[in-house]
Amino acid sequence: MSPQNLNTNCPPTWCPGCWNFQILAGFKKFLETQDAKNCAMVTGIGCAAKIFDYVNLNGLNSLHGRVLPVCLGLKVGNPKLNVFGFSGDGDAYAEGMEHLIHAARYNSNIKYLVHNNQVFALTVGQPTPTTETGFSDKTTPLGVKLPPINPLKIMLAAGCGFVARVFADVKQVDAVLKEAMSHKGFCFIEVIQPCLIFHPDTGYKEKTYNIQESGHDKTNFTEAMRLAEQFDYSGIKSDTRIPLGIFYQKEKPVFEEQLKR
């Protein structure tokens, strides 16, 4: 299938230069290698979810926080369908956290990308569960008092069989999706996607490094946990290091394959 067929007539309404364009391009590049007719996408609500309008794939633009149960419903209805979920950090970690934990437990064969910009962007800049302490906006003039959560640690603890993080970059998104496709089960992929307007890029990309290149064994759970702790989402400092790559991978029984047995 040519990339042209994946386009819609809908012009993107992300801000000029938004990192989401990189994720969109990465997903489309990946789809060129797939049978798009057999792929479906599910999105939530927020800037990340707008990707639904820019890719001509079947699926559902769902409600805020409800990407994963809809993905599960698609897989139960048609286990052969390749299902891709897209959420923002508000969608995945605030409104949808209960579904995220259980998605790791169910282990349905869903590929789930969380565009993490550490802010509610489409509602103009409120803090999310991954916003750093001290961040302030009109709703939080006294500054965020709480520490951010660490979604990778949560996913590892929840028993997720594929935990990865990439930066919002065409090549990285394409590559991690290819890796995820060869994994049978729920894949959690966090995409660091700084928001240009409400949570500006303070040098995230420069602080990243690839853990596979530095020899990480992705079957080593303890090491995966240690690497997940390396970046705690509390902003960029001189010694910040953001590990990227596949933190952990282990195949487990798949939800939809066990139905009616």
Binding site: S62, R66, L68, C71, L81, H99, H102
Partner: peptide, 18 residues
């Protein structure tokens, strides 16, 4: 499933497949 929200949303997902 984990709660009634997941129940209805998964229901909608499966309904979309026919």
């Amino acid at each position: 499933l984990e709660n009634e929200i997941a129940v209805v949303m998964a229901g909608i997902g499966s309904s979309a497949t026919g």
